[in-house]
Design a protein around this nucleic acid. Structure first.
Lengths: 216, 216
DNA sequence: CGAGGGATTGATACGTCTCAAAGCATGTGG
DNA sequence: CCACATGCTTTGAGACGTATCAATCCCTCG
């Protein structure tokens, strides 16, 4: 059997129904408590994961203690896909959560289905897109712009109040800033009525155009 | 026919002979002059490229003129693989160069060969690895460390003199710094005898351990 | 030999980090 | 129900690193 669309675009390709099905069929369901480690950095990357409930954070800590958050994964997202044989980033449960886990080897067993394979390529490409955005942000944006971009991506056009699942330290480590700088930028944006924080873990966008302009 | 290794590790998998062959068989050979554009940002990503001679640079310019260099590609590297339907980064010839080009559609025609498909996944994963390293660098390293990392990756253990194919501006835009800061860091590293520049486009590592320590 | 473009150096401004303290929630035991 | 401890967030003052602007240098090429 040949692969019909080995280079298909993940956004025009049919949704990754095959992956979802593989997870449902082969996946073991696991629950993790807040801050529990799902896999460690430099662990062998033998499993594939899919978020069912809660939020996941990937991060890497350097020898001298600096920490970089790779990304945050929400319900439906696949994570654990790494370029090499082992994980360069660790994964932890940001909130209490539930994930489906599949052995890569098991995945192989059903991979005769070209659709599964395409879905994995698609997931890898989505991962790449996140990484590209991250590079653009870290390379060229100011603290103010980074924080604005982050809020923008969380709100994603949603008009009402949005939940902020992560603390300031996680935001800082994702954005390549310190916790104090993040806090100051949030205060600043709030002072300009661009965004409003009823509590530190909940916000609402007030001036979309202003936020968008900052996020670029 | 099933895919034997849909999730195989690109580093343990057999070299991408299938891709190479596909490029040789189907690829059109193109030559570009220094600074010539190969594709523009937001162009449709319909072609796949492989460097035969010279060096390629990918970059993205934001609305207000800030520029981020995505990466540099050397002989044998595949570029043009993007997550979406169009290029988020433009590609330009850094030096005079030659590349092989293949239509994605043509690639599809020979994709019945599972090996070709695996090779594309492998290339995508290599791309992802570069991006992860880039994020780590931009997020948490100082100017000094960034420049050291860059020289380290260029030298790659090579004892003799190494050619620097790009100018200071390109280095700066890759490292998320200004040209002046890059220049100062180079002068500094040279002052400490860690590295030596016989000319501005040629260098030699003098103290590997010191450079490695900085590069992390 | 002179012109032009890239690279370096210098002086200063600005943004972000650092260190320290205070504020504000949340939960616990009295 | 209050008092207090704890952890996270905010605020402040000052130090530090990188950017900015401007001038000079140097190499290459005509």
């Amino acid at each position: 059997m040949t692969l019909a669309y080995p280079l298909s675009d993940p956004r025009t390709a049919p949704p990754a129904a095959a992956l979802t099905e593989a997870f449902e069929r082969l996946g073991v369901r696991m629950a993790y408590a807040r801050d529990e480690e799902i896999y460690a950095q430099d662990d062998e990357a033998e499993l594939l994961y899919r978020v069912v409930r809660g939020v996941i954070r990937t991060s890497r800590v350097t020898a001298d203690g600096r920490r970089q958050v790779g990304d945050f994964y929400y319900v439906g997202d696949v994570f654990g896909l790494e370029p090499g044989p082992d994980h360069r980033f660790a994964a932890e449960a940001l909130t209490e959560c539930e994930v489906q886990v599949v052995r890569r080897a098991s995945m192989r067993a059903v991979a005769g289905d070209a659709e599964v394979d395409r879905a994995i390529l698609a997931a890898t490409q989505r991962e790449m897109e996140r990484l590209q955005d991250h590079v653009l942000m870290l390379g060229r944006k100011s603290a103010r712009e980074r924080v604005a971009s982050f809020l923008m991506s969380l709100a994603g056009g949603h008009e009402g109040q949005v939940d902020l699942p992560m603390g300031r330290q996680d935001m800082a480590d994702y954005l390549g800033l310190t916790i104090e700088t993040v806090s100051r930028m949030l205060t600043q944006l709030q002072g300009e009525q661009i965004v409003e924080f009823p509590s530190s873990r909940r916000f609402q966008v007030r001036k979309w155009t202003a936020l968008e302009a900052l996020a670029e």
